[in-house]
Design a binder for these strands. Structure first.
Length: 190
DNA sequence: CGCTTTTGACCTGCGC
DNA sequence: GCGCAGGTCAAAAGCG
């Protein structure tokens, strides 16, 4: 870490990290800590249409009428054991955002109450257990719900570039809860 | 040739 | 205890 620790995460940094020329970051939901029982969530309405309350942020309208495993981890703990989850809602034609990391698709599942299938990705980096879920918003298919689970134990090639370019801990600015690509490599070697 | 994607089966947890 | 739904695995196929 060679940048100032921003106590007040600047969301726009993350937008810059990703190639948002084709995306419109509509919502950013940070889920941090473990998921046993309760969790803390912060939603940031970044887009003007969102702040206008048209889509009311991340919370799906059906959240209260069905068990929402999108937010709550129904198994009590996530398998990756990192206890860190970040969800985004972006307006995009593309389902997969280029966030600088390399992902390998390992599953696809159609979910109930949604006409669109959900795709499951794992980070291709060896030893990195970060997962990503991608699905289209069932109410507005022009939006893509992306959920990251876990913390990268490495930097992405493009992130190195961005760090260099912007002289700042890009990802650190995203989540103070542990979204740190330079996290101690507890089990990562080579 | 190596890596990624696809896809159906299997596993696990939760609600009833 | 049973059924459902979500999540993961793994073999086969495809692609660069």
């Amino acid at each position: 870490m060679n940048g100032p620790q921003d106590p007040n995460p600047n969301n726009t940094r993350f937008e810059e990290m990703m190639d948002l020329s084709e995306f419109q970051l509509s919502d950013y939901l940070l889920l941090e800590g473990d998921f046993e029982g309760d969790f803390s969530a912060k939603t940031m309405a970044n887009s003007e249409e969102n702040s206008a309350g048209s889509s009311n942020g991340f919370a799906p309208p059906e959240a209260s009428e069905r068990r929402n495993s999108n937010i709550r981890c129904k198994r009590g703990k996530n398998k990756s054991g990192t206890g860190m989850r970040v969800a985004f809602r972006t307006k995009s034609e593309l389902e997969v955002m280029d966030d600088g990391f390399k992902w390998r698709k390992y599953g696809k599942k159609s979910v109930k109450n949604s006409p669109n299938p959900r795709n499951y990705y794992k980070c291709s980096s060896r030893g990195c257990l970060v997962k990503k879920r991608v699905e289209r918003d069932r109410d507005d298919s022009s939006y893509v719900m992306t959920t990251y689970e876990g913390v990268h134990n490495h930097e992405s090639p493009s992130l190195v570039y961005y760090n260099y370019k912007q002289m700042g801990p890009v990802v650190d600015a995203v989540a103070s809860g542990g979204w740190d690509p330079q996290a101690p490599p507890s089990h990562y070697s080579s």
